[in-house]
Design a protein around this nucleic acid. Structure first.
Length: 273
DNA sequence: AGAGGGATCTTCT
DNA sequence: GAAGATCCCTCTC
């Protein structure tokens, strides 16, 4: 109990430290000139982040629904204060369209202190706390007040760390979580990746602690299930709109819509030979 | 397998 | 003062 709290406290302290001076992060990858003779700017340091090409501003600058689908198969990278990297493949997202969307925090076009990040430039993180205990992370898209909620990841690297971070908030005997339980939900993935309020309003294209990398295997149209969003309650017609997207057949998705998948199977005769 | 309730606190009305 | 883009545990069928 106290050990777990200590671990969490350490992490948040380190995180807020790293978030105060983001200038380091901004400088090293982009503005370091090649001919710098300082020993610290060796070729190794300069190329370290570039060699894994990350998703840039033009990728995030697309309409909300389009971005929500484009995220599927892409990779979220989280670099912890100690240098370890967590990698996860995005397998489930939800689109929140902005002013007209009754289920969005930005419904009515109203900007508040909490949702300000939804109105910032595409690629900006919107992190909010839910039910007093959990966090959810969104990425701002093109469109006023529009953003994409990240719902589930397929863990690729750093699973041991994720398991540790996830278990800290759970009680009872230390029953190790299965891989599929690590990031299959919006607040689970935040826990597993150490994402909290300190990440609100950060820029995915400029931050040293979190960014995205293009995925190797991107899904085709027939691999993406479009269905209703989770947990939004009764929002009239907006509750029924197919604004949740996930990879069909992927076992790391949080909520599977079997009915919708059967309908799709009928419409997509990909198995005929 | 599915239903129900508790945790817990920030944000906005 | 109430609700909330969730999760986990427990109870029941």
């Amino acid at each position: 109990m106290s050990r777990k709290r200590k671990l969490l406290a350490q992490l948040s302290a380190l995180q807020s430290n790293s978030s105060i001076p983001p200038s380091d992060a901004l400088k090293s990858p982009t503005t370091t000139p090649d001919g710098n003779s300082s020993p610290k700017s060796s070729k190794y340091f300069v190329t370290e982040k570039k060699q894994s090409s990350q998703l840039e501003a033009d990728f995030f600058n697309q309409p909300c629904i389009s971005l929500a689908k484009s995220f599927l198969g892409q990779i979220l990278v989280r670099k912890l204060p100690d240098g370890r990297e967590l990698w996860g493949r995005i397998v489930e997202t939800e689109a929140y369209l902005g002013g007209e969307d009754e289920a969005s925090h930005s419904k009515g076009g109203k900007q508040t202190q909490r949702n300000a990040a939804m109105f910032m430039k595409p690629g900006t993180l919107y992190v909010y706390q839910i039910y007093g205990i959990y966090f959810c992370v969104n990425v701002s898209s093109q469109g006023e007040g529009a953003a994409v909620l990240l719902r589930s990841l397929e863990p690729l690297q750093g699973l041991d760390v994720m398991r540790e971070l996830r278990s800290t908030s759970r009680k009872g005997p230390a029953k190790p979580l299965k891989d599929w339980q690590l990031c299959n939900g919006p607040s689970k993935l935040c826990q597993a990746f150490g994402i909290d309020k300190a990440f609100d309003q950060r820029d995915l294209t400029q931050d040293a602690a979190i960014w995205m990398v293009p995925g190797q295997e991107l899904p085709g149209e027939q691999d993406v299930v479009a269905t209703t969003r989770i947990g939004i309650g009764n929002r009239g017609e907006w509750s029924q709109k197919p604004l949740r997207f996930y990879l069909r057949g992927n076992k790391f998705v949080s909520v599977v819509d079997k009915k919708m998948e059967r309908e799709m199977a009928g419409m997509e005769p990909i198995s005929c030979s």
